[in-house]
Every structure is written in structure tokens, then in C-alpha cells.
Design a protein around this nucleic acid. Sequence first.
DNA 1: CGTTCAACCTGGGCGC
DNA 2: TGCGCCCAGGTTGAAC
Length: 281
Amino acid sequence: MPELPEVETMCRGIGGVAGQIITGVSFPRRTRRPILISPPAGRLAKRLIGSRIDAVERAGKRGVLRLAGAAADEPERLVIEPRMTGLLLRVPPPSDAHVRMVLKFAEHPPLIFWDRRGLGTIRLLTNEEFYRRCGPSVLGPDALTLAGAAFHSAIHHSRRPIKQALLDQRVTAGIGNIYAAEILFAAGLDPRSRCCRISRAECDTIATVTRKILRRAIRLEGSSIGDETYRTADSRPGRYQRCHQVYGRAGAACPRCGAIIRRIVQAQRSTFFCPGCQRRK
DNA sequence: CGTTCAACCTGGGCGC
DNA sequence: TGCGCCCAGGTTGAAC
């Protein structure tokens, strides 16, 4: 679920835990399979209790809690991947089921990781492991600062569709299915266009609209679609869904040219686009 | 190397 | 009411 704007919003929302000392940790399990936690709960809790959180950061679509006081070779980042339905909350969750982790603090409300589908992950990583799992070979340049030149050199050799390149976190980190659709609509490009046919100038356009759309989505606190979906850390819905031009709008009229918006499937995922004003390259 | 596909899960919505 | 099916914001690893 959460893409860059949603993860950024949640991380900002829980930013108050920076400077706090963790006094309690629990990993409730209410469903069939426990969420993926590494290392196992006992060892993880032992490392976390008594540690201070230095800062809350974001790496692509992951939330990162930096821990203070780690020895050089010790785990020092708690990396939380919300995947489809994970939420980082500082208020009570939508339901008691699906609470996956609770961090308690002496002088701050608890931090709750809530994940309905349970596909999310929680990992305590050393510097080396963080580099391996979140370094440049896994996460490309952050989409908020995407540059046309870097994007062009990352994709121009490839024959795959441009939509897939935008979703490839090694190309640029943070874009998911919703924003990929909105970015390609804004750039006027058909999502099936092969990367190698996208010009340098068009890459500049893609980079520009990407930064603009993501900044605006962050300002509006992300996209919430339906109930039991993404919420801010205060459990409020985002507002960017009101700005969606094509995502989830199959069969409706294109706001730019009036053509009927289509839904197709690419790489097992829905793609929404306007056949009238998104040109195929 | 690139692409395709199943798998990991829960739950809402729809047709019958 | 209930059942079966399809769908969902993401990622990974195996197979081709």
C-alpha cells in the first residue's frame, strides 16, 4: 500500500519518538502466521529495550528508526517495510487484531505497527546489512529528487515497458502502482512504451512531474482509498486521492481529453491510463 | 540479462 | 445468508 508519500507522511507523524528511550517491546500475533521479524522476537526485544531512538528516516518505501549507542558492528537501524497494508501509528489502531509491534516509551505514547495482511517486515540491521538491503544496489535515487539524466541512463538500454521501470526500486526508490499511473498520465506517455524509445527530454519530463506529484501528495498526506486502508500516524485519511487523474478510474472520462480511461494488466498489476492523451512510444 | 509467475496474507465486494 | 471468485497500495525468488 504505502508508497513514498504515505511512508514519508507516517515517518513525519511518528517523528516525535526521536530522542525517546524504548521501555517496552511486544510483538502481538493474532493471525495465523507471525509477521516476518528479524532477529526473532526475543533477541530483537532485548536489543531494543533501553535503546534510544536517534532519528526517524525513510528509505524508499521503508521506515527507518536509527538507534543510538550501537557498537560499530552492532545492529543500529530498525527497518520497517509496510508493504501493502502496514501502518505506523501513534494513536490506537483501526482494530486490535493485526497489531504486529508495539514500542513503549517513558515520555511518549506507544508506537504501533499495524498490518492487516501481515506482509510487512521488521528487521534490525547492522550497517553492513543495511547497505546490503537498502543500499544503492537495492534502492536507486529517491524519487523525490529524481533527475532526468540519471533516470535516462538507468532505463535507456532496456526494452521493458516504462511503467515497470518506474516500479523498479533500483531505478528510483519510492514509486508504487498508484503514483506510477499518475506520473505517466502527467508526462503524457503510454505505460506500455518501451524504455529504449523514451527520449532524454521525455525523461526530464518524467523526472519533473515525479517530483511535483510526490511533493504535492506529501503535502496532502498521501492517498487513502476505501476504509481500512492507509492512514496517517494520527489515523486520519490522506487527501491526495482527490487529485488522482487516472488511478482507479477505469471507464470514467479523462479529465484532460474526455476519452475513456482504460485498465490493463502489466506484470500482474493494474495499470490505468488514458488512451487519448498518453502517447505510445 | 530480462521477463513471468506464484507465493506470502487478510478482507471487501460482487455475482449467483 | 452463504459460497466462490476476483481484487488490493509490495516484494521475493524460482523458472524459463
